[in-house]
Structures are given as structure tokens and as C-alpha cells.
Computed example of a mutant assay.
Amino acid sequence: MEIKIEKTTSPKAKPTDESKLGFGHIFTDHMFVMNYDEGKGWNNPRIIPYGDFPISPAAMCLHYGQEIFEGLKAYRIADGSIQLFRPQENFKRLNNSAKRMVIPEVDEDFMLYALKKLVKMEADWVPHSAGTSLYIRPFIFATDPYVGVKPADHYLLMIILSPSGAYYSTGLNPVKIYVENQYVRAVRGGTGFAKTAANYAISLAGQAEAHEQDYEQVLWLDGVERKYVEEVGSMNIFFVIDGEVITPELTGSVLPGITRKSALEVCKSKGYKVSERRISIQEIADAYDNGKLDEVFGTGTAAVISPVGHLKWGDKVMTINNNEIGPVSQMLYDTMTGIQWGTIPDDFGWIEKID
């Protein structure tokens, strides 16, 4: 399909102080849009000026939550060129989410082509400072003006771009994580593995409770036995116990993170013992009491690696590695950001250049 382009006649002023970008609140001049219509398929791909979009008050996405999204980044490297980190994995996961939410799948190769075209057009928005990037948000939502529960016949796919700094204002400093005992995020057979809006809305009550206790994030337990660790609200979770790198296995209620997958591959390449398995919060507490809980860290597109300095489960507060980043966390951060920003070789074949 040919992508039509309509350039803005009112370009916005670009940020002059990249130390104050924040995360996800500044948007570029243009966005990618494509329609889906039953009987016609995906059609009318276009790049148009960024702006508000009219939608019916009866649009099905507003009433029944048929929506999915992705998140990835573009990086400016030392020679001024721009590159993406494993974008094919994002579009593959978008289609996995689409299957679960009964949304028509997209052509992954075409989406990569469209994304590259959009990022190239917005190249001047990709920040230059260390630690900054262009955050990329593809998403699909149902637009039928119909108050009824069924898969929609019409959808919009959009990609918007946001020049961003660090996800956490504290940067790579360890965060405080609160183990949620009251609420449940997901169960097997549900939508936990899909990147859909409802999963994040469900997590807000636990997140609010954590903030009340001065903790940044929530660690969710399984929704059946309420004892096995699953994931953090915006990250997958890893534990280093007695030298072994452990992360919860993918059983259908945990998001298959691309940074998670990359971290596992890096650890294996470095010779670490790596396990994907069920791990209970009691096992974590026992390891801590026995002096074997070496590190805890989260992985995700936004933060990349986020070391955990405190873990609170009930009345028990565990201080991890003296509230300092550990060697595995630091190695993963240095390796993955090094590949993303082009300061070390990409031995894994993960980088996709914007030509």
C-alpha cells in the first residue's frame, strides 16, 4: 500500500532543554494513521499532522475496551543516524495481542516500513542527549458507533511519537516495590499476556495503594493461589538468587516483554545460570533471610533496567544489595543501552537502521 503524506503547515517548536523532556507528554508534528473496515481490510495508510481525532461518543472502544498498543524507541547514535531496537518483536507482539482481543492482525513488514517512514520524517525530533530517545506508541482501537458487545467492524491504527528522557526521574537509582496482596492483575486464560489497556487500568488501585506507602511500583502475585510472583505494573521482574538469574515463566498471565527476552539472551551469552520458572514470594523472602537474594530488578522498554532497592511484602521490608544497583543489573543496562545507542557492537542482530 502507498502511504499518503500530508505535512503540517504549523510545525511545533522542538524542546531546547533535553534534560527536561520527561516521559510521554511531548509529541511530534506528525502521526501515522490507517483504517480497518470489514470486507476491505486495512486501508488508507497515511502520515498526517498530529492532532485530535473525532470519535463517536458511542465508539465501541470507549464502552467495551477493544484496544491494544505497543511501545518501543528510536535512538540517535554518535554519528547522528537513528536506529530501532528489535521493532519486529513489537509488531509480532501487537499481532498476538490482536488475536486475544479479536482485532484484525496487521502486516508486520508493512508496519515496520511505515514506522521507518514516520521516524525518518520526524528525524529532527529524535533527541541528541545521552539517555534520551524517541518513544514510539503504536495502538489500535475499535471505532464502530455501537453500544453492544461484539468484535468491531471498524478500527483505527495509529502511531504517535514522543521525545522522552528517563522513565523514572531517579534514573538508574533503585526503586521501591510493594507486593500487592489484595488486588489481582491477571489470571491464566485472561488477557495478562496481551498489551491491552484494561490490564493497566486494573493495576491502578494497587498502584495508588503503593504510592500511599511511598513505594513506586507494585509487584503482582498470581491471581489463583496468590503466592507466585508474576510481574511489576510496568515491568517484568528478575531475581538473582545465589548467583542464578530467575524470572517468572510465561504462563499466559505475564506480559512477554521484549526487554525481558533480551535480558535473558544477554545473561545466557555471558554464562549466567538462567531460569524461567514459578517462584513464590515466600521463596524470595527465604532467600533474603538466608543472605542469598543478591539482586532484584525490572526490565521494560521505558526504563530498560530498573534495579529494586526495597521490596515490601506485608510487614516485611527487604533491602536489596544495600539499596544499590548490582553487577547483573549494571551489566544488562550497560549492554542493552550500549547496543541501543550504538556504543558497543550489536552481536545479536537486534538493531534496525533508519535509512
Rank of each mutant, 00 (worst) to 15 (best):
G223K: 06
V179L: 04
Q340V: 00
K270S: 04
F32V: 11
T16M: 03
G192L: 07
L21R: 02
H211F: 00
V218M: 02
A74L: 00
N43P: 02
M336A: 03
F53D: 02
V240H: 03
T301C: 12
D346H: 02
G80Y: 01
Y36A: 06
V240W: 00
P151Q: 14
E212S: 15
E18S: 13
I325G: 11
A59D: 08
H154N: 14
G22Q: 01
L221S: 07
M158N: 02
V304I: 15
I258L: 15
I68Q: 10
I77P: 05
N199T: 09
A287V: 11
D17M: 07
I48Y: 05
N90A: 07
E209F: 01
D107H: 07
T337S: 11
Q83R: 13
T8P: 13
V218N: 01
F348Y: 15
W313N: 15
H310F: 09
T301M: 08
M111I: 14
F32W: 02
K20I: 00
M1Q: 03
V232F: 10
I140L: 06
V149K: 09
W125E: 06
G192S: 14
T299L: 10
V102M: 13
N96W: 01
E265F: 09
L332E: 11
P163W: 02
A13F: 10
F85A: 01
V149N: 14
P49H: 01
L219D: 04
M158T: 07
V119W: 00
S133E: 08
E6P: 02
I103G: 04
G342A: 01
Y36E: 02
G189V: 00
L219G: 11
E70A: 11
G65S: 13
L157M: 14
V33N: 03
W341R: 11
G131Y: 03
I246D: 15
F239Y: 12
L72W: 03
G39A: 05
G24H: 00
D315R: 11
E6N: 08
Y215P: 09
K117G: 05
Y228N: 13
F91Y: 15
F85K: 00
S262R: 10
A130K: 14
G233N: 07
H63S: 06
R278K: 14
I5F: 01
I3K: 00
G148E: 15
Q282D: 14
F69Q: 04
L204Y: 05
S129T: 12
P163L: 05
F85N: 01
I246N: 13
Y272E: 04
I55C: 10
E89Q: 14
A59T: 03
A58S: 11
P57R: 09
I82D: 06
G165H: 03
E67A: 09
D107Q: 05
F23P: 07
N322K: 04
L112G: 08
T335A: 10
V266E: 13
Y135E: 07
E230I: 10
E180C: 05
I136E: 09
F141I: 01
N321H: 15
E38A: 12
Y146R: 10
S253L: 08
G291W: 07
V187S: 15
C267E: 08
Q88A: 13
N181S: 15
D347E: 15
F239G: 09
S306K: 10
V266C: 12
Y168V: 13
K227I: 15
K20T: 10
G39W: 02
G41L: 07
W350S: 03
V254C: 11
Q282G: 09
